[in-house]
Write a protein that binds this DNA or RNA. Structure first.
Lengths: 160, 160
DNA sequence: CTGATTACTTAGCACAACTAAATATATTCG
DNA sequence: CGAATATATTTAGTTGTGCTAAGTAATCAG
């Protein structure tokens, strides 16, 4: 755990400090980006669930419940509402008719993808004001981040 | 998502690509950090309000309403609940007795600060596995980020 | 002092999201 | 077959957040 490898002569724990600032930056970043989400017309839980459905292929309600960490009834209603909005379709499983599989409609996928595009667009605009060097620093930083915190895991929702 | 950035000999839109990756990284980062928040026992609006109170010094209810972008009655109730939980205290203003100032209790501050520490701690641990050069890249990146997306805004809440 | 404004509260409504408990139905296994 | 198990739904209720409308109380402007 504690690896005193701070040879840079800085203060006690450089990692701690960078983590702290990174934390703040991520919060501010997403805070700004999230404002674009309102336009989707979906609430956060629905957006999150839709994301799992879009990127996670057809999923059963049970899987969705596990992914979203909610109880079955919550998912039932959630899916019903998404279905009513034309964003997902539900089909029975061929071999096990207890199971219902949820799949995103083209409209559901589009809504999510466009939402993300809106978010990213906003950020890209800010990035154009930077120097090439600064952008490269950001690029390198994201690569590092993705490496350390996304070894394996479920696809991230468009949530926040 | 964003791909074809190479077909015209150069980067069609480097900013767009970096934005896309940054977006993904921020989502994954907060996804990880946010799991720690559940332990606070507070809901997102309360956590956010408490953060404004803790870091924004004593604030009036009106200021809090403006910061959180909600109507006065919503804040009244929010503060009442926080007060009931022993996380904040409310005092009248000396010169203007219509005004009520909200201040965090030691327990309220501690809850927030420890919550943040929990979040950051996890990340700091990952960062210790990096080289000094990589950490420096991350540090520079956060500085750039904070600069472009936090020109002069209100203090950021610890919510996400 | 009177009237308008400001700061906040109270009361009541609506709604989203969650839950536990009680089903209904389908599958699996002894 | 029949019992246990698994999947999802329905029912009924809670919690939390937000709103508006209407009220109280303090301050300010004339």
């Amino acid at each position: 755990m504690v690896v005193g490898e701070d040879r840079s002569g800085g203060h006690a724990d450089e990692a701690q400090e960078v983590a702290d600032r990174l934390h703040g930056a991520a919060i501010h970043l997403l805070r700004r980006l999230r404002t674009e989400d309102v336009e989707s017309g979906l609430t956060a839980p629905r957006l999150s669930a839709l994301s799992v459905i879009v990127f996670g292929g057809p999923v059963t309600l049970g899987e969705l419940a596990a992914a979203e960490q909610v109880r079955p009834p919550t998912v039932s209603r959630l899916v019903r509402d998404l279905e009513q909005g034309g964003l997902v379709t539900v089909e029975p499983d061929d071999t096990d008719r207890r199971i219902r599989r949820v799949r995103a409609t083209p409209r559901g996928s589009l809504l999510l993808i466009e939402g993300k595009a809106r978010r990213v667009q906003r950020l890209a605009q800010d990035l154009r004001a930077l120097t090439g060097r600064e952008r490269r620093t950001l690029r390198e930083a994201t690569a590092i981040l993705e490496r350390i915190l996304h070894p394996e895991g479920r696809p991230g929702p468009g949530g926040d």
